[in-house]
């Protein structure tokens, strides 16, 4: 584990990514206590106050402190994106491994169908699902998870095909183990590495997708301080008070970049062949 960490922070990109991730985790856990004001505390004398000693990142149209809203909003954004990615990866991994295990015609049928589902762009799929499930953060998570599953299934299946031909899997099949045993106990644990790498990078997509759904008014609902929602609210006032817009935008970007960098670093650390 420490060995892996060492390899990840050897390059500046990995070190920056990990540092950002630690800050992000701290903000998610401690956010509300770090915030100088309450996220919904209004101050009508301080409407549109520019960044300064009173409001470090300025105040919004209701005089709410932007920094406090950002800090409290982290837990409305990042953990949900993580949950969606975890669920989507789990579904995709099971489909991918099962397809590789079955092989032959079933594998072909599953993967062709999977590719067809992938022909629906992620955001469109999420929008369709939310339109049925209804607006709200929880439904957005379900929608993102389902939209992610086919992509994960494809990645997992390509790794699982190699594992399928390993002796220990053949032995398990020859022993007459049931399909669930072979899939969950023999194959799945051995494709975890690539799945984790792929999932880490996908968290950044999930952060963006979740923020986009909220931005479009279909994810988190006001007065939540979810970051995408904050951007949507700030658009009206962007010429008058650009800081309300720029702060949550930067927060979304930094989170996405953090997961991207960590994912890349993880891939490099786990595949020493790719070292350049």
């Amino acid at each position: 584990m420490t060995e892996l960490l060492h390899r990840m922070i050897r390059k500046p990109q990995g070190a920056i990514g990990l540092a950002l991730l630690v800050v992000l985790a701290a903000v998610c856990i401690l956010g509300p206590w770090l915030a100088p004001y309450g996220p919904e505390k209004m101050d009508f004398l301080g409407r549109f106050r520019a960044p300064g000693w009173q409001n470090w990142l300025g105040a919004d149209q209701f005089g709410r402190d932007v920094l406090s809203r950002l800090l409290s909003g982290a837990r409305a954004t990042v953990p949900l994106a993580l949950a969606a990615t975890l669920a989507g990866s789990a579904i995709g991994a099971v489909i991918g491994v099962a397809s590789a295990y079955l092989g032959g015609k079933s594998d072909e049928a599953i993967m062709r169908t999977n590719d067809a589902v992938m022909a629906i762009p992620g955001l469109l799929m999420a929008l369709l699902l939310v339109s049925t499930l209804g607006n709200g953060a929880g439904n957005a998570v379900v929608a993102i998870a389902l939209a992610f599953a086919p992509g994960m299934a494809r990645v997992t299946r390509s790794v699982a095909l190699a594992v399928r031909n390993q002796d220990y899997v053949k032995a398990a099949v020859a022993r007459g183990e049931a399909a669930p045993h072979v899939i969950f106990r023999e194959m799945l644990p051995n494709v975890m590495g690539p799945i984790i790498i792929e999932a880490t990078i996908r968290v950044s997509f999930a952060v963006m997708l979740f923020a986009t759904l909220s931005f479009l008014g279909l994810g988190a609902q006001p007065p939540a301080s979810e970051w995408g929602l904050m951007v949507a609210d700030a658009r009206q006032y962007m010429h008058r008070a650009p800081w309300i817009l720029i702060a949550p935008s930067a927060a979304i970007a930094l989170s996405a970049i953090a997961f991207n960098l960590v994912g890349d670093a993880l891939r490099d650390a786990l595949n020493p062949r790719d070292d350049r």
Binding site: A232, A253, A256, N260
Partner: peptide
């Protein structure tokens, strides 16, 4: 890298702000 890591709505909103 920044371009790939930013959701479209953020890029679009900020660009709209700058370009106008």
């Amino acid at each position: 890298y920044l371009g790939v890591s930013l959701p479209e709505f953020v890029t679009a909103t900020v660009l709209a702000l700058l370009l106008t």
